[in-house]
Design a binder for these strands. Structure first.
Lengths: 114, 114
DNA sequence: TGTTAATTTCGCTATTAGACGAAATGACAA
DNA sequence: TTGTCATTTCGTCTAATAGCGAAATTAACA
């Protein structure tokens, strides 16, 4: 029950749902997600830790970046069903479509002054 | 998106999940649900209005009582999938099993001094 | 019509959650 | 090793939410 409630709480925030949908397109680092959501890095990091806590996403070190990706190996039935339904449900959402466009053009190299 | 977030918010409270599971067994009035949850009637009523708002449940007048039941006619894919998954997921939860026993023995006639 | 009983709404309090900026951490590069 | 940059953690503020009791509402019935 506790786990289930954590899953639903994780899903009950707009920015966290947006992050999950973005990650269906490709792996992203914190600063890329921040650029798309338009909120501070610390807040993004908090959201990511909540999503990671319920095993919706995985993190993976890549130099000084941390890449986040969907956890596609979960055995949790709720997690899996929801990740099947979400894209279907939000296909036509204007905000999500706009996020998808940004995901395609977001460039870590421009964001971070390398 | 707004609707989806409302659905997940509705599901992110323990007592509301308990109510949904109880209603898989039979229709219940507010005072019966109150007796099982052990919280005040006004709080139960609030939870029910939240569940009704996202169309998880229906209300139906029956004399001076209001019977609440699951809405099995929803076309919302998230709602339907979740109601399929919930019982499966919480089958073995001790609290839910205890609620189920109480649902079987709860008696409106004893609760309300008729 | 007036009373009683079930339910809902209202006002309040305590806790939780999201947001921010600043400070701390960790990893690469000079 | 020292500096830089991405990320995380911490402290604080504000908004939202679950809980309660009391008042309002609604429906049956005397």
């Amino acid at each position: 029950m506790k786990k289930l409630l954590k899953i639903f709480k994780a899903l009950s925030d707009k920015n966290r749902v947006r992050i999950l949908l973005m990650l269906t397109k490709k792996k992203l680092c914190v600063c890329e997600i921040q650029d798309i959501l338009g909120i501070t890095v610390s807040t993004v990091s908090k959201h990511l830790s909540i999503l990671r806590d319920v095993e919706f996403i995985n993190d993976e070190k890549d130099g000084k970046w941390v890449n986040y990706s969907l956890n596609t190996a979960s055995k949790d039935i709720v997690l899996n069903q929801i990740m099947l339904i979400l894209p279907f449900y939000l296909n036509d959402d204007e905000l999500i479509k706009s996020d998808f466009e940004k995901v395609n053009t977001v460039c870590r190299k421009n964001l971070c002054n390398i």
